[in-house]
Write a protein that binds this DNA or RNA. Structure first.
Lengths: 210, 210
DNA sequence: CGTTAGTAGAGAGTGCTACTATCCATAAGC
DNA sequence: GCTTATGGATAGTAGCACTCTCTACTAACG
């Protein structure tokens, strides 16, 4: 199929597809002439993957490229790919000195995770995200420890166990990797949406009169 | 305290505080002279609230303003405030015609929520977010119904019930409202982070050998 | 066979957002 | 009285995700 058909089928504007090609998010089609190239189902699938990561997951172009590169690299062991996807999703990295409050929160989060018995890389960006959430609570006057997250940790653990268990075992590597990455991104958005819906439901009964 | 002290204590750059004042995110201090004003603890707290919503929650300036206005408006019933906060967090709104696939996903999500017995406003933006997640799965070749979200809905329901139950009853309205809004935003980020950490933990055992 | 529409590739431009810099007149602090 | 800080306002910046425009072609249609 040609680029215009790819645009029509996917619903992505043609200039945007060209932009993705320039940015290396899409592989070039196989050229049939100096000014003509052919795109296949693989391109369509990849384009949809890109859009899902950007629109549902909120990733930027560079983050998407990082994820795609990790998926494509056959030498990487599976769990590194998950780690790389998390790195792309998470905050960029430390810039400048870390306030004392944040350092304290990170230490508390580290201890909390250790108490849970979770084996997580020390560099996982989600550690910092969690610490940032704790700092935000402190700054708003909530005098809490990392153990406020306990109920969330229990729920997250159950969900993660379920998710990883439903990943098929025998499938080819690339397929498995993509499935895990898509699951990470899409179900994160879904979980957030469901939590808000559940909140709205409970708020109706809790604050119904007021 | 003066603006420079507010900047020093909060860690927010002074020009940024001025910007927030211009944008109406912060109330002006009480003027002590034509070019001097005094800021109190309320300003500091509000500034921290703004930063938490932006940095942890990822809200934009306009969304933050909408949330703050909703909090401040005493006439609004409590559950409307929650709804407004959700509206600020969620996708902006429909622009242009809705693809048939999306309409189908929305219908399926609506039926799913009805089956759950949840009482949620038809306009809740989280409905659309959830439908978007479902569409993304479809486009990536996963032939699933809205019931893939079942385990997530169970977890979300438990968490929401717990969260709303821990809101103190007797507190002044403004305090309660802020607590609920902060909880929505901060614990959403925390839950996402914990899910990734739990995934990393389970991935280590699941894909340990590879 | 000619006309029209589509194509690859690449550089420049756009619109938006969250800041950031500069200016000025005035006021605080030593 | 001199340096530094302040409020208020206007203008400028950086980054991002596109989107436009241009050139030199070529495919498809009547």
């Amino acid at each position: 199929m040609r680029i215009s058909e790819l645009s029509r089928v996917s619903g992505v504007p043609l200039p945007t597809i060209k932009y993705y090609l320039r940015e290396g998010l899409l592989l070039p089609g196989s050229p049939t002439a100096p000014n003509q190239a052919d795109y296949g189902d693989a391109h369509l699938h990849r384009l949809r993957l890109v859009r899902a990561l950007m629109e549902v997951g909120g990733l930027g172009v560079t983050a998407v490229r990082a994820v795609l590169d990790a998926i494509a690299d056959d030498r990487l062991p599976m769990r590194s790919v998950v780690g790389l996807a998390h790195r792309a999703l998470g905050p960029p990295s430390d810039s400048g000195p870390v306030p004392e409050e944040v350092a304290r929160a990170r230490a508390e989060v580290d201890r909390f995770l250790e108490d849970l018995g979770w084996q997580v890389s020390q560099e996982a960006p989600a550690r910092r995200s969690l610490a940032d959430a704790l700092v935000a609570l402190w700054r708003l006057g909530r005098d809490v420890g990392a153990d406020v997250f306990q109920p969330y940790a229990v729920a997250a653990d159950e969900l993660a166990a379920f998710e990883l268990a439903t990943v098929p075992t025998g499938a080819p590597r690339a397929e498995t990797v993509e499935r895990v990455v898509v699951g990470t991104v899409v179900f994160e958005a879904a979980l957030a949406a469901l939590r808000r819906l559940a909140q709205a439901n409970h708020a109706a009964t809790r604050f119904g009169g007021d």
